[in-house]
Design a protein around this nucleic acid. Structure first.
Length: 573
RNA sequence: CGGGGUGUAGCUCAGUCUGGUAGAGCGCUGCCUUCGGGAGGCAGAGGCCGGAGGUUCAAGUCCUCUCACCCCGACCA
């Protein structure tokens, strides 16, 4: 490709509404253009990268024997009403109406459609297992689109669905898919981690997420130093502390604590270690436990894990924090002065709280705290539960090693769905036993467009993007210096371009006749992995100049045999 | 959806408080000089100041209403 014909439009300045590196660099390099909130066009440059990702995904899916198809983006409401997700999926579902007033959705995912296909197409266990996939535009009406294509409303997704005669077959495909996904992210040149995950809205039992590690990631993931334990923090159970609370060493005392609203203020003003304090959070109780409110206790330096809490039978799901008015009505004190002693509502404590002694907590009376509280002596110990987020250094739940935390961008998610959809849509086949069986299903997603952003998050420097070779829009940039004035430079660059292109290398020849600095900066910004500079200076010595995008310095290549030397640099000789 | 903020040239932003000729830098067009890390000069093009009402002799600026976008929170690939 000739740069002069490629509509390369880069900007020096960073657009004001981009926060993270990938979004900024995608805009500056001209890969994407925003049409409206959460909806982007891909320019020729961006589209080349997106297609690279798409092709890797497609090749690996095909290699595994999965069948590509294409389903409609627009789906009839009836299908969604049949599974109940017309209402359950909530506001994320974009509903649209045709001229006759019939309702449709723009598909955010395709369990309904694929299961409809399966119930019509699949008759016998002999056709199973079978896995279909597609690469297609999805729309989810995110409450808050963010970070460019990282969390867009419209995005490109690879979604796959498998159908089975029994759970054992589902598990086999599930773990096979786990390997396929791992291969995809490896091939894309990404540093990633598979972690156990919450299965969330889609339902089902087992589930893993694949995260590209990046500091700007929206998810917190946890893994063990010594075992293969890895999980999303939403799901990571905290190891139960061993032993009992130490014997009381202090008397309980009631202390006036005006101007204390937070744990931090309490610790600072009264010189209390934070791990000797208790945070009392009040949430809505579940209906089956009688409604009302329930208090959750975690250690002052710990955070409540809302996902775990919502799964407890005593707690309403989804989790809802009580308002200050509700708390005052039930307890008679504000949120800053709550604690377990004389608490008039039911209470659950994180396991780590139950092994504390001589601790401080609110007195359920405004501007008063108790210090030196001990379980049993001063107040009956509440029931224990796993309520908190694990923290760096915790013992791994499997007992091997300690936990490390990292941030990740979720780029893939695999689920064992079970028969949730096959039952509600009556997708059954005849088994070997001659009876009908609802097919257990798996579903597997990859955020194709999100991978592009995640790859940049993981691979950039102060000059721009540093594409992993498999994702780069072009492999080699050829930069002629002052080509306008030197036919020699021009001819060598053209010949190199022709030869490399003939050898199947994707080259970008910068024939724009710009000043060298502009070309260098542009090519670094858009992140082309290999750069060859053709200049009078080098030609006099029979040399070209070569540089890897991520290298510190240039190296010379002999003009004679330059094509072979470059192919060798690409690992293609 | 709650809370905060911003809308002025293709982009980044001044100007709004205190009403009076619509600006700068980058980018774009032409010419000249320059040419190995975002050059310099000259000459240009480009704006219903997000939209609608209102106040005023006069509104980018003041008032009301709207729309869009961004940021912080709960969801997801």
């Amino acid at each position: 490709m000739r740069a002069s014909r490629f509509h390369l439009v880069t900007t020096r300045e960073t657009p004001a509404d981009a926060e993270i590196a990938s979004h900024q660099l995608m805009l500056r390099s001209g890969m994407i253009r925003k049409l409206t909130s959460g909806i982007y066009s891909w320019t020729p440059l961006g589209w080349r990268v997106l297609k690279k990702v798409e092709n890797i995904v497609r090749e690996e899916m095909d290699r595994a024997g999965y069948l590509e198809l294409l389903m409609p983006a627009i789906q009839p409401a009836e299908l969604w009403q049949e599974t109940g997700r017309w209402d359950d999926y909530g506001e994320l579902l974009l509903k649209i109406t045709d001229r006759a007033g019939r309702e449709f959705v723009f598909g955010p995912t395709h369990e309904e459609v694929i299961t409809d296909i399966a119930r019509n197409e699949l008759r016998s266990y002999k056709q199973l297992p079978i896995t279909f996939y597609q690469i297609q535009t999805k729309f989810r009406d995110e409450i808050r689109p963010r970070f460019g294509v990282m969390r867009a409303r419209e995005f490109l997704m690879k979604d796959a669905y498998s159908f089975h005669i029994d759970q054992a077959s589902l598990e086999e495909t599930y773990w096979e898919m786990y390997e396929v996904y791992s291969r995809i992210f490896e091939r894309a040149g990404l540093v990633f981690r598979a972690v156990r995950a919450d299965s969330g809205e889609i339902g089902g039992s087992a589930s893993h997420e694949f995260h590209v590690l990046a500091d700007s990631g929206e998810d917190q993931i946890v893994f063990s130093t010594d075992s293969d334990f890895a999980a999303n923090i939403e799901l990571a159970e905290a190891a139960r502390p061993e032993g009992e609370a130490p014997a009381p060493g202090k008397e309980m005392e009631l202390v006036d604590t005006p101007n204390v609203r937070t744990i931090a203020e309490l610790c600072e003003q009264f010189d209390l270690p934070v791990e000797k304090t208790i945070k009392t959070l009040v949430v809505e109780a579940s209906e089956e436990s009688g409604g009302g409110l329930v208090a959750l206790l975690v250690r002052g330096d710990h955070e409540l894990n809302e996902i775990k809490a919502a799964k407890l039978p005593q707690v309403a799901s989804p989790l809802r924090f009580a308002t200050e008015e509700e708390i005052r009505a039930a307890v008679g004190a504000g949120p800053g002065s709550l604690g377990p002693v004389n608490l008039p509502i039911p209470c659950l404590a994180d396991h780590s709280v139950l092994v504390m002694s001589d601790f401080g907590a609110g007195a359920n009376s405004d501007d008063k705290h108790y210090f030196g509280i001990n379980w049993g002596r001063d107040v009956e110990a509440p029931a224990g539960a796993d309520l908190r987020n694990v923290v760096e250094g915790d013992t791994s739940p499997d007992g091997q090693g300690t936990l490390r935390l990292a941030r990740g961008v979720e780029v893939g998610h695999i689920f064992q769905l079970g028969t949730k959809y096959s039952e509600s849509l009556n997708a059954v086949v005849l088994g070997e036993d001659g009876k009908s069986h609802a097919m257990p299903m798996g579903c597997y997603g990859i955020g194709v467009s999100r991978i592009v952003a995640a790859a940049i998050e993981q691979n950039h420097d102060e000059n721009g993007i540093c594409w992993p070779a498999p994702l780069a829009p072009f492999t080699v940039a050829i930069l002629p210096m002052n080509a306008k004035k030197s036919h020699r430079v021009r001819d060598v660059a053209e010949q190199l371009y022709a030869d490399l292109t003939a050898a199947g290398v994707e080259c970008l020849l910068d024939d724009r006749n710009l000043r060298p600095g502009v070309m260098f900066n542009d090519m670094e910004l858009i992140g082309i992995p290999h750069r060859v500079v053709v200049g009078e200076r080098g030609l006099d010595e029979g040399k070209l100049e070569y540089r890897l995008r991520t290298a510190e310095a240039n190296e010379d290549l002999p003009l004679e045999g330059a094509v072979e030397a470059i192919l060798e640099k690409l690992g293609r000789s």
